[in-house]
Simulated scan of single mutants.
Amino acid sequence: MSEARESPPAGLTEAAPAPSRILSVIDMGASAVRLVVAEAGPDGKVRILEEASRGVLLGKDTFTDGRIKATTMQATLRVLKGFRRIMEGYGVVHCRAVATSAVREAANRDSFLDRVRLRTGIEVEVIDGPEENRLTYMAVREVLGEHEMLRRGNTLLVEVGGGSADISFLRDGEPVFSGTYALGSIRMRQALASWRGHHDRRVLLLRRHIHNVVEDIKREMPLREATHFIALGGDVRFAASRLGGLESAEGHVRFVKEPDFIAFCDQLAGEQVDELVERYRLPPADAETLVPALLAYRELLLATSAEEITVPDASLRAGIL
């Protein structure tokens, strides 16, 4: 005999489960434009449906000439039109498109954004450093959950992007200091683009610049008090995968011992870009920014008391979702 089911009060009907929604995020960074399409279920859980990334060197223009060139604008429009077709195919109901330092600092950013809106129908929001830090923090919390480093003690959270480094100092899991600093890999690379001297001398100049910026950061944040170090970004994920860092049970986090990471950074710093391309099968654009980014992580890690580096599979795009 089946169990009786209580009827709703007269005049009321049971609410139907909320339907899933298809959402998307576009992240316009210094070296690429990236798309994530996801399904948000009624329970709040998000399932990634598709991810796409197209190399567009917006940062190379802005950090060299202070403005986005017409050719780069056209390349960006082609990418966004392609992303638009992908979103239409999935029936996306809401898209949030954001741009960071490469667009934020461009003298012609308004005309660029107007052209994007008129040609693609996509409204791009230029976000500032504090918003980048907030979104990054949210993404890390989603991946690490109730991990020890987000519940007690001091943790440094770092993402070295193409244009800048977003850094937050967490105390018992809550941000108490945060800032955006001139340690972007493309920015640093372009600052030395005209250098025609020996490779070792170029790396020395790069290390000196990074050291000076980190010394300034020390005056704003108590870096030495940090006993945990969380690093985000494609360059540090590459390093963690090459070093075979210990993976979490869920597979979304890698842990790499500090001496192993430092040694790997120093090894790569001694190699030319074409050597990195050949050895690791990297696209040239990625190989150009790898060493500047890793040397920035290296210097920041050494400024803390952390004994390992934690590399979650998290991003600003995940924070938006």
Rank of each mutant, 00 (worst) to 15 (best):
P130N: 04
R96I: 09
V92W: 13
Q190T: 11
I68E: 12
R117M: 13
L206D: 12
I26A: 04
P222K: 01
R34S: 15
S248A: 10
L183E: 01
L35S: 08
S53D: 14
G121Q: 09
R141L: 05
V160S: 06
R109P: 09
V236H: 10
T304A: 05
S24N: 08
E14T: 11
V236P: 02
Y297N: 04
V92G: 04
S7K: 11
M138Q: 11
N108M: 09
A15G: 10
L118R: 10
H228Y: 10
R207W: 08
G153Y: 04
E215N: 07
E131Q: 14
G89P: 13
Q272Y: 03
M73K: 13
D61E: 08
R281P: 00
S53P: 01
G145C: 03
E142G: 02
P283L: 09
V236E: 10
H147I: 01
F238H: 12
D65I: 10
M28N: 15
A303C: 04
L58E: 03
T64D: 14
R96A: 03
A107S: 14
L282V: 00
N154A: 05
A10P: 10
G11K: 05
A16G: 12
S241P: 03
L223N: 03
R78K: 13
R242N: 03
A287L: 12
A32L: 06
F255C: 05
A249K: 12
V273E: 13
R115Q: 11
D61Y: 14
F261R: 00
V33P: 15
R152W: 10
Y181W: 14
L223Y: 02
F261H: 01
G82L: 02
L57Q: 14
A102F: 03
D43N: 13
E174N: 02
F238Y: 13
P283W: 14
R187H: 15
D266V: 00
R5H: 10
I262T: 05
A15M: 12
E105F: 09
R152K: 14
V143D: 12
I48C: 13
K81V: 10
F112H: 08
A107F: 12
D274C: 06
P222L: 02
E142I: 00
D286A: 11
R117C: 06
V116S: 07
T71R: 12
E142F: 04
A182D: 15
G234Y: 15
P175G: 05
G233E: 10
E88Y: 08
I186W: 05
E132V: 06
L118V: 11
V176P: 01
R202F: 09
I309W: 03
H147C: 05
E132D: 06
A15E: 08
P175A: 02
V291S: 01
G319K: 01
R151V: 02
R115P: 01
L204H: 13
R254W: 10
E125W: 07
E299Y: 07
V256T: 00
C265M: 04
L35M: 11
T310A: 05
E308V: 00
E132M: 09
D216Q: 10
L58R: 15
G145S: 00
G153L: 00
C265K: 03
T304R: 03
N133P: 03
L157E: 02
P175C: 02
T62E: 15
Y280H: 12
V124K: 07
I127F: 11
A4E: 13
S315E: 08
P312F: 05
L302W: 00
P312V: 08
R224S: 06
R202G: 06
R208P: 06
G29E: 13
E88T: 05
R141W: 09
R152I: 03
P9L: 09
V256M: 05
I22N: 05
